[in-house]
Design a protein around this nucleic acid. Structure first.
Lengths: 261, 261
DNA sequence: GCCCGGCATTTGTCCGGACAACCGGACTTC
DNA sequence: GAAGTCCGGTTGTCCGGACAAATGCCGGGC
């Protein structure tokens, strides 16, 4: 008695088959991370087309010589990034693109640089002064204690884009104007060993005052975007309080956000 | 021969000891989820104070009768929410608070309701018309195909807060003005079985036109916040394209964001 | 007194397996 | 023809164990 011929498979061919995935066990990079990077790259360059089903986890694990938990961890990280969607009883699908990045704690400097705008910074003030009540409340320090006050004008293509005013607890890191003109504040903080963790932001709008309009090369009373942000490191300390002004005619906040499942 | 007296423990007492944690194995709720909820509640009400160390995972697992992977999954979900921080060789710490919610795809209606503002909606228009080039591009449909156009005025305490203009592919869900006045658009979508997944947003500012100023009860040329948003469901379809106007004098966007580790 | 190496502690990574819940389609039944 | 039922396939949850890597502390050596 011979087996009946296998019925033609309904399922499409597993698209990860033609991807020559593989991990390097001698590398210090975690296996799940190697895999998630390869999958992300494949999605990025279109080798995994939106909507297509990834072959099932168990088979994929077997093919790569990995365990299922490891493969799941790799897939999960891409689900968290919004690149994949899982459906029980169905499979794992590539999201129909449109996803870029789900909003990071971005530095304006980095944003401009990434957009190829070659940002420029002009430090207008860089002093230490006693904290006002508002600043003290935002930073969680005693009123009157020393804080750095930094005022900068950020330009792109020689045109003013934003007027940035930051307050930073004194003694947290060295802040000379020279370095501030060469890079962004967040980069200096990371370089000083501060691990940024989260931030509270508030974005609004109002009419610019005469002085502000002058700095930003806008007409008097022009609408400007305002952004207030307090940033915390992973110990919960407030490390920065900024209140910034952006030219509404030249700048808007773009971001992607994901729905928490 | 008696054991020498144990040296006094340097470590603080495990704060989870006094928490009477426990899981119900007969419940259909996943164990890791039960645990993460209990921990989150303990943090919320201050039973786990910021900065305190959470006793190690292995001991915690043993005490609860769970395996270490399950406990790790619970902790990981809180790390993802920004409530906890892990440090290898040290332990898991409660973040020094200030964290509320890391920015969800929020409906203005829900936001206002959560703030106890009793939102009110006035539907100004609710028609089906052919898609303009801009709308078609944003929604990924053919130019000229049918889309719902909905214009609403959102009020709180009887005062206008925002002027909302949404475009939705026709046939996606039933949209009668009556239900639109009773609740928010996103709630209607979820009720129609649409799983929201992500959105691309752009927030800017400009001066209001005369007509817009009149609707929002603002003086002519007053600054207004603009928000453009395309929302996608988990199949990657664009399900909504909105361009909204908010009174800058009454409204600002508040959100929390986390640094991706 | 100061520096450095070793040690205990804790989280990070990985494995292999087991069963449950869920989805979709095929099949049966009315 | 329509509705209900069964079944294969897939992800979700959970377990127990093992070793690696990072951190902070203590003691020994200089």
């Amino acid at each position: 008695m011979t087996e009946p011929a296998a019925k033609p498979v309904k399922r499409e061919v597993d698209p990860t088959l033609s991807l020559h995935l593989g991990v390097d066990r001698s590398s210090p990079v975690p296996l799940y991370f190697q895999l998630s990077q390869q999958l992300e790259a494949a999605i990025e360059r279109g080798a995994l087309t939106p909507g297509s089903l990834l072959g099932n986890e168990i088979e994929l694990a077997g093919r790569l010589g990995l365990s299922r938990p490891t493969v799941r961890q790799a897939i999960q990280s891409l689900v968290d990034k919004g690149l994949l969607v899982r459906r029980r009883g169905v499979g794992t699908q590539v999201v129909h693109s449109q996803v870029k990045r789900p909003l990071e704690l971005s530095s304006l400097y980095d944003d401009l640089e990434a957009a190829g705008q070659r940002p420029e910074t002009r430090v207008l003030r860089n002093v230490v002064e006693p904290a006002s009540a508002e600043t003290a409340a935002a930073l969680g320090v005693a009123e009157g204690s020393d804080v750095h006050l930094i005022e900068r004008l950020r330009l792109a293509h020689g045109e003013p884009m934003a007027y940035l005013r930051n307050r930073i607890p004194a003694g947290l890191l060295g802040l000379d104007s020279e370095r501030l003109e060469a890079t962004g504040l967040y980069r200096l903080m990371r370089a000083a060993g501060i691990t940024l963790h989260s931030a509270r932001q508030s974005v609004g709008a109002r009419a610019a005052t005469g002085e502000e309009a002058g700095l930003l090369a806008e007409p008097d009373g022009a609408p400007v975007l305002t952004m207030r942000r307090t940033t915390f490191d992973d110990t919960g300390r407030a490390v920065e309080y900024g209140s910034h002004l952006y030219r509404a005619s030249r700048y808007s906040f773009e971001f992607q956000l994901l729905v928490r499942p």
